[in-house]
């Protein structure tokens, strides 16, 4: 499926880009980062306009992050009243350090991004906090991946694999660390 989607990218351009980024933001297994790398290298080859691709990717990513947030906020309203310690902890985390969590899960800890979007909605994180950190994080993600694709055009699939593995490792290591701290503090009570 990935292969086919990618070979349609140069043919149909921006709509394919928006679709892949949207699916990625909502947590579907879509190769959003690889697509940005490829777009970067196609900009360098003169097949795409840099400004168009940059603005489209950024707007699509921010829009679909907010879509995930909205689903969590209105669809998960019942979850919000769960008085279980794990949920309280997540709520507390997002209240105190939610901005940083949103920012980092856009790019450095990207695999956790969709989950954080839904969760931020479920715990009703104020939009005045979610939106600015989301925009800042997506600016980093889009700039970084388009830029890497532009510079290292010939090796995008390899770069994408390495970056995917590194962000995967960091994301799950951080998640494990947070859970370990939760378990320890829960046992003390």
């Amino acid at each position: 499926m990935t292969e086919v989607a990618l070979e349609w990218l140069p043919v149909y351009g921006l709509p394919v880009l928006v679709l892949i980024i949207g699916l990625g933001c909502l947590g579907a297994p879509a190769p959003a980062s690889l697509t940005l790398l490829i777009c970067g290298s196609l900009i360098a080859a003169g097949d795409f306009s840099g400004a168009q691709v940059y603005v489209t990717s950024l707007v699509a990513a921010i829009f679909f992050d907010h879509a995930g947030y909205a689903v969590g906020r209105w669809g998960g309203a019942r979850l919000a009243h769960w008085r279980i310690p794990l949920m309280d902890r997540a709520r507390h985390m997002l209240k105190t350090r939610g901005g940083m969590a949103v920012f980092l899960t856009r790019w450095l800890l990207a695999p956790l991004g969709p989950g954080v979007n839904y969760m931020a909605g479920v715990v009703a994180m104020p939009l005045r906090r979610f939106t600015p950190f989301d925009i800042a994080g997506e600016v980093v993600w889009v700039t970084l991946y388009l830029g890497l694709g532009y510079v290292f055009g010939s090796y995008v699939s390899q770069i994408s694999e390495v970056l995917g593995d590194i962000t995967g490792f960091l994301a799950f290591a951080v998640l494990a660390w947070l859970l370990w701290r939760f378990i320890r503090s829960d046992l003390k009570r």
Binding site: E3, L6, E7, L9, P10, I38, S41, L42, A45, G46, D47, G153, S157
Partner: peptide, 8 residues
């Protein structure tokens, strides 16, 4: 790779 264009 399949996504590459002639320009690329």
């Amino acid at each position: 790779e399949p996504w590459m264009t002639i320009g690329y």
